[in-house]
């Protein structure tokens, strides 16, 4: 397993470099250049030239990338235009909020998805199976922000059960209960699609193993059906489910931008949304880089985990 993990690590390093190259290149496709964006339309040509020289825009692309990497390795992602502070500081202060949302969404989607998927797999072709197909189609066709708006409308504005924006109430808020109440709707919104995908994968993975000889053996030993499913079938059905859960990380990290925008959740995504209208390119660039690096890291961890639960992978 260690050999596999090391090999996978060596595959990851070039990808990380590639990611930094792509985020660097984002500034190259700007109409005008970074100096125009940083100074705004009113700046004089002289001050533009000064800034170009100061940040090295007059140098070759290779030197510019080397400068970019040099700053990056020192943790310097530039200065945010909207938030008037270093991008790295801003990202660091927001990361925990985004992570809280993403982690609670994946925990909800995984636990509920595996439970519902198992429940559905017990009766393939039944009403519950067809309902699952319909829900998967519907969720697959729904923009996450629209689901968020509908949830706000129903549970926030009509029923008035749950708060609809931010992380805490303005009056008397701030406790764990208050935070939990604020998390319900964003977590549901962000986790809904992953829930559908994980449910579907659990169902098909379970159906693939349920006809296996080892299941027949377990049944013939007189074990209860619950034990057969939970102790014998489910663990063997887990590898593809784990892969799918890992892939959800990508959806959760990008879905967070939309979900945070809808619910005014003070994370990286909301800040990126605020940066778009102000053309805060350094912040958007930094946000994309950070979220992509987290995604690469999560994929690496998931693969290592996969090798752990499925030792056969080493052979391939």
């Amino acid at each position: 397993m260690i050999a596999f993990v090391v090999r996978r690590l060596f595959q990851t390093i070039p990808v990380i470099f590639g990611v930094t190259l792509v985020t660097f290149l984002l500034t190259q496709i700007l109409p005008g250049d970074l100096a125009d964006v940083l100074l705004g339309p009113t700046a004089s040509e002289e001050s533009r030239q000064q800034l170009r020289a100061a940040i090295g825009l007059d140098q070759s692309l290779l030197v510019q990338y080397a400068n970019y990497m040099g700053h990056l390795l020192r943790g310097d992602l530039g200065q945010s235009l909207v938030f008037a502070q270093p991008v790295a500081t801003m990202l660091a202060s927001r990361l925990a909020n985004t992570a809280l949302l993403a982690v609670s969404a994946i925990v909800l989607a995984s636990t509920a998805g595996i439970a519902i998927g198992t429940w559905v797999a017990l009766k393939p072709g039944s009403l519950r199976d067809h309902s699952l197909s319909a829900s998967v189609l519907f969720l697959n066709s729904m923009p996450p922000f629209w689901l968020g708006l509908v949830l706000i409308l129903v549970f926030g504005l009509e029923l008035r059960w749950l708060p609809t924006s931010g992380m805490s109430s303005a009056i008397g808020g701030g406790g764990p209960g208050d935070l939990a109440a604020h998390m319900v709707l964003p977590t549901l919104t962000l986790g809904a699609w992953s829930l559908a995908v994980i449910t579907r994968m659990t169902r098909s993975a379970l159906l693939d193993v349920i006809d296996g000889d080892f299941i027949r053996t377990a049944r013939s030993r007189g074990l209860s059906e619950a034990r057969v499913i939970l102790r014998h079938a489910l663990p063997n059905a887990m590898p593809p489910v784990i892969t799918v859960i890992g892939l959800q990380a990508g959806f959760l990290l990008s879905g967070a931008v939309l979900t945070e925008t809808v619910f005014s959740w003070p994370g990286i995504g909301l800040a990126m949304y605020q940066g778009i209208s102000a053309r805060d390119i350094p912040f958007i660039q930094g946000g994309i880089l950070l979220l992509a690096l987290i995604f690469v890291l999560v994929n690496f961890v998931v693969d290592a985990l996969y090798a752990y639960v499925n030792p056969k992978i080493e052979l391939s």
């Binding site: 931008v257 778009i276 979220l291």
Partner: peptide
């Protein structure tokens, strides 16, 4: 592989934001 390393809409968001 590098382009797949950008989750979901993020790369599109970056390109859209850069181009205006």
């Amino acid at each position: 592989d590098v382009m797949f390393a950008f989750p979901g809409i993020l790369l599109a968001l970056g390109i859209g934001a850069a181009l205006g």
